[in-house]
């Protein structure tokens, strides 16, 4: 027990302050909002590195004239806003993030060719620039949003821990498959509803309830199987469906930050959701494979399966409880 407490404290010490914000999208962010045919309102948000803006620079098409003002720090990142004048428009021009190749961060570029027609590109150290197409094709949108969906789920430690807890909790592969499918269906529904503006809930309570859903699963995990809630035991898909509705609202919050192309909302939604699913399946596949390999190397683990599951329940529960408190304090 003492060892368990020490392990949990160590785990919290390592994870707590960092993962509290780890879920937010923290790349560089360049936004060009069309004011009229030749002017764009530019927002350039740069991550903080040791109290200074990350040394990356937003380079707009050569035909644009603009003078970026100095950055201001908003407590989390450095932001500058200005007006760029591009008499020839943006189409056909290059947007490059100078210095991105020497960093480990992404930059999300959100731009409008004409008012209301939002397009998104994600630049990385490997691809630091792109030529603005006259209009993004369906394949570009599919590629962009699938990538964003995968990135979002793989960086969303809370969603991954929820899925991990489900993998540990639900016995039998067929039941797990149903539970995961129910989770998928549920978060697809709320993601679509929230992204289309049908369902509007403020993000802080949603994030807190997401953390609470993990506490619920962790509590179940920490109990001996015979004392677990018989309903959750018999119908895990109902539990995962219910919580999936909440997690979908969390995904929608991220998607709202990224933005949706006005002419291709259904396609972008589908692609983002597909990306989330691909990331989720990848994660489950890795968890299963690691579990199988570990059981092969240490068959004695099977004898301690109950204790390990309980230990995981305590660890997950402690972390999730911290998130609940942390997120409630944001209200």
């Amino acid at each position: 027990m003492r060892q368990l407490v020490i392990t949990l404290i160590a785990l919290l010490g390592i994870l707590a302050p960092q993962t509290g914000v780890s879920h937010a999208l923290d790349p560089g962010y360049l936004e060009l909002v069309s004011v009229d045919e030749s002017r764009w309102r530019v927002t350039w948000r740069v991550p903080d590195v040791n109290g200074r803006p990350m040394p990356i620079e937003a380079l707009l098409p050569e035909t644009c004239t603009h003078e970026p003002p100095p950055f201001t720090f908003d407590g989390r990142a450095w932001t500058a806003r200005w007006i760029a004048v591009c008499p020839d428009g943006l189409a056909g021009g290059d947007i490059v993030i100078g210095g991105l190749e020497t960093t480990r961060t992404d930059t999300l570029v959100r731009y409008e060719l004409t008012p209301g027609k939002v397009q998104v590109e994600r630049l990385t150290a490997a691809t630091i620039g792109f030529t603005i197409p006259p209009e993004a094709g369906p394949l570009d949108i599919l590629q962009s949003y699938v990538g964003l969906g995968i990135t979002h789920i793989l960086e969303g430690i809370d969603h991954l821990i929820f899925v991990f807890a489900l993998v540990l909790l639900v016995r039998g592969r067929a039941r797990l498959l149903w539970a995961i499918t129910a989770f998928t269906v549920a978060h697809s529904i709320t993601l679509a509803a929230a992204a289309l503006g049908t369902l509007n809930l403020p993000p802080p309570p949603v994030e807190a309830v997401i953390a609470l859903s993990i506490v619920f699963l962790a509590y179940e995990l920490a109990l001996p199987p015979e004392r677990r809630d018989p309903f959750a035991e018999r119908f895990p898909w109902v539990v995962s469906f219910s919580f999936g509705l909440i997690h979908g609202l969390g995904f929608a919050g991220a998607l709202r930050e990224i933005g949706l192309p006005q002419d291709d909302i259904p396609l972008a939604l589908f692609a983002f959701n597909a990306g989330v699913e691909i990331g989720q399946i990848l994660f489950i596949a890795v968890v299963w494979a690691v579990g199988a390999a570990l059981y092969r190397l240490y068959p004695m683990l099977a004898q301690h399966g109950r204790a390990l599951t309980r230990g995981a329940g305590y660890a997950i529960g402690s972390l999730a409880a911290f998130w609940v408190i942390d997120r409630v304090l944001v209200f």
Partner: peptide
Amino acid sequence: AQSHEAFGDLGPFYQ
């Protein structure tokens, strides 16, 4: 060799 960039930069943990 480039496979870690298949989905872009996923942050230091995945790097």
